[in-house]
Design a protein around this nucleic acid. Structure first.
Lengths: 198, 198
DNA sequence: ATGCGACTGGGACAGTCGTCCCACTTCGTC
DNA sequence: GACGAAGTGGGACGACTGTCCCAGTCGCAT
């Protein structure tokens, strides 16, 4: 095995772990499965990380930070707010369909974090980050379409996150595209009605 | 240990397993943890069930069948459709707040089922059952308030399920009651707009 | 070139997992 | 009261887990 500095190895292991969790679930993401995916030995694992838990924690924070650009539309389109929101949700849906295992992995990581008091803050931070990004998009959308949010945009953002999660979970189970689009449509409708013309 | 016929033991083990999954998560629901919770020996477990997988499968189907009365409001109240839907969602939210661990367990069981091809149909059936119950409520609500659903009530039902899941997941992470109520409000709004006056 | 710290490989550890076995006890039936 | 079936208990198994150890090797600064 080529010699790789510990810092790079940490990153490689996190990537390998994400692939394993996506493909086989977090329960199957054992230290051995992860090092096999990364093509290294067990000793390298524990040279780079003190424990599996430490790796999982880093996996969660890494992956959350990266979600940033994936979910956020870099450009908003649509003529009015409702259309713009629906386009955004459908964009997320495309993202979900393109890599369902990834979103399933994110869901599993959240639930995993929820189970231990030590890790609970990670799940909360994950959602706070999502909400922050959503709030930024919602503020921009309101600006562009000349409306103002009736309730604080942070709360609208959290409603959007809830709708997105629901869409994800339902589609992952049923894999019904029409249902998912109906959810996106209804969600966009509901959200757009939380704003008033300026 | 008192002598118990295998059929009763199966039921007792399923109940014990549900408690363990609720309290500690499905990963911790080992055969030993389950029999300890049920107060019996390992041999009794494998006398009643061929394997742990068989127990988990029965747990999922049992618990889904039971969800029936918990989520379905036995009486609908509210003057118009929107109020009626919001009251129903808030009722579900009360149910969630009263026993969050149970809903978290349901979510985990769904994800667990999603991970193996053999069990995937169980998750699909679980959601189909939810949708069926939701459809019945939605049809009754439309009847009572004199409206008709613009899209087939089954699809409206699946949108409702998605919203409910989103509400559940978001609240389980953030435990913010105001956010949850905002989600319920927005969801009721969206759903009510999927119907026209008769 | 040489030494030292960074890195690697393989094997081993103790603990836990699902499952199985077998001797034993209880129960209903004749 | 005997007997076979049903149910029980404890201990054992092989497989797998996370973690650790240690002898060895590489690369870089001197």
């Amino acid at each position: 095995m080529a010699r790789i500095p510990a810092a790079e190895r940490r990153a490689a292991l996190v990537e390998a772990a994400l692939r394993v969790v996506s493909r086989r679930g977090i329960a199957q993401a054992t230290t051995r499965a992860i090092v096999a995916e990364a093509g290294m030995s067990l000793a390298s694992f524990h040279y780079a990380f003190d424990s599996r838990d430490e790796l999982i924690d880093e996996l969660i924070t890494t992956v959350v930070a990266r979600e940033q650009q994936a979910v956020l539309p870099d450009e908003l389109d649509g003529h009015d707010l409702r259309e713009m929101l629906e386009a955004g949700l459908l964009r997320y849906f495309d993202h979900l369909r393109a890599d369902p295992e990834h979103e399933q992995a994110m869901l599993e990581l959240t639930q995993y974090a929820l189970r231990s008091p030590d890790r609970h803050p990670l799940a909360v931070a994950q959602y706070a980050r999502y909400a922050e990004l959503a709030a930024r998009s919602l503020a921009a959308a309101a600006e562009l379409t000349g409306v103002v949010w009736r309730t604080p945009v942070e709360q609208v953002a959290r409603v959007l996150i809830a709708f997105t999660d629901g869409l994800t979970l339902t589609w992952l189970v049923a894999r019904d595209d029409d249902d998912a689009r109906a959810v996106a449509h209804a969600a966009a409708d509901a959200l757009s009605r939380m704003a008033d013309p300026r």
